[in-house]
Design a protein around this nucleic acid. Structure first.
Lengths: 257, 257
DNA sequence: CGCATCCTTGAGGGCCATCAAAATGCGTGG
DNA sequence: CCACGCATTTTGATGGCCCTCAAGGATGCG
């Protein structure tokens, strides 16, 4: 079970209570949290895998991921490539607001619940709530910091280590927003998705997963990741959570904003 | 020679005239350009390779790259990894303003000229110039879009193709800001730097470069990249410039802001 | 002209893609 | 409850890409 403080936050703000939880949320006032919660004018449940935004699209709203998993993807000549993933509480396409035309796709994985914020509403917030506006900026830069970490890991690690890093990052991010559990987490990600995210074939991902299992690091099953040895997982995947801007070297808890 | 319009822009705004040239600069008013130009309170020339900002650092100013090349890097256990590069006109560490603590390093390559903007000045701009503030946001999201493209290319391409992509991107970005020439461009990047950027060893980069040369695509010399066949270079590296938000599918020239 | 840095080349081995095929799990409908 | 179709997971064999270790050659600077 997550901490009582987190349960309380989700109860008070059921649609946006996980936004920046464990990061900069402590810096938002109750009024700001309420403004954000009320900015969502529509909630939708998507059960089938769906591309909710496509490269080149303009959009009139931005999307809060309330529940489920989302992949940010780019299409290659024959294949889709995952460039990042999202967990509940992520404002997945603030980019679309500031860039207008999106450079990538937003694809759901498994069942998700989405909240939509009209851009007319966002524009008002930008004008009337400069502090909240800056927190939005921070949220998009957090994505950029995660992209940079991925770039380095792709340059540095073998497939098995990349997978270890991905599992460690997902688990950490889920726990930041009060999800996952002590042994691991549930996820709709298949080995095919992991292949798209790690730049390997599904076949090789399968072999790498077997190696991870045989080393007693992590056990991957259909719909479920069990972390057998967290310390070894993070060591093997060279994972340090600093770049997520939660606790640690880069933490902002000192109250910068 | 670059177009007269670009020469004029650099003459009028010698320190910031290349900022977002070919992208969103056309959307800045003369007043905004002047405010930006005057926000630089100090100019420094750095001749030796230097780490001007280190992961974990806080900083009281942000840096405009006026001339030269800069690498954004992350340190691995034994090696440095390049996660992106910068050309003149790039505001290299707006991130440091919005994130406060930087997640990566900023390293110079060759001789550079830098302009420093104090954060007190940036805060004033954020408050008094909402449009300029949004353009700054856009500039950081452009970096994120480039990161995403790199992630995909690292997942997708062999070393030789990665190098082709890097050369194509550098050349395109240089030409956007009125640099480079019809045959290629000068650069202080060594094969070692290219190895850091492509996730390969310097030895393998050397062999990949030879292959590119033998295929008549590009000739890499000390301090100079000659593009023998632009069309073949872009095809081989699977480079499409859309994600740079200049001309093309994602262009913003319609005047969105 | 000596030194440091950068570039180049060769040999052997590990990681990973591809082609091919089979087993497993899961939802649907009979 | 079973049969079936489909996506997912698993396994094997072969070959290409790239790393490592090792050594030598070129370039530029003082």
């Amino acid at each position: 079970m997550p901490e009582p403080a987190i349960v309380d936050e989700i109860t008070t703000y059921p649609k946006t209570g996980r936004f920046l939880l464990g990061r900069l949320r402590h810096d938002l006032s109750d009024e700001e949290k309420r403004i954000l919660e009320d900015s969502i004018d529509e909630v939708e449940v998507v059960t089938e895998p769906r591309r909710i935004l496509e490269r080149g699209a303009t959009c009139g709203h931005s999307t809060m991921l309330i529940d489920g998993f989302i992949l940010r993807t780019l299409d290659g000549p024959e294949q889709r490539y995952g460039v990042s993933f999202h967990v509940p509480g992520d404002f997945v396409d603030l980019h679309c607001f500031a860039l207008k035309r999106l450079d990538h796709n937003i694809d759901t994985v498994g069942e998700v619940r989405l909240g939509y914020v009209p851009h007319t509403r966002l524009i008002e917030i930008m004008e009337e709530q400069p502090h909240l506006a800056r927190v939005f900026w921070f949220a998009t830069l957090l994505d950029a910091a995660m992209h940079r970490e991925w770039v380095m890991k792709l340059e540095q690690l073998t497939t098995a280590r990349r997978l270890a890093h991905i599992f460690a990052e997902i688990w950490t991010r889920l726990q930041m927003v009060g999800l996952g559990d002590a042994q691991g987490f549930d996820t709709p990600l298949t080995q095919g998705h992991l292949a798209e995210m790690s730049g390997a074939t599904a076949i090789h991902v399968n072999r790498a997963i077997r190696a991870l299992r045989e080393q007693g690091i992590v056990d991957v099953q259909r719909g479920r990741i069990n972390i057998a040895d967290k310390s070894e997982l993070e060591k093997f995947g060279r994972f340090t959570p600093d770049y997520l801007y939660g606790e640690g070297e880069l933490s902002l808890r000192e109250g910068f904003y």
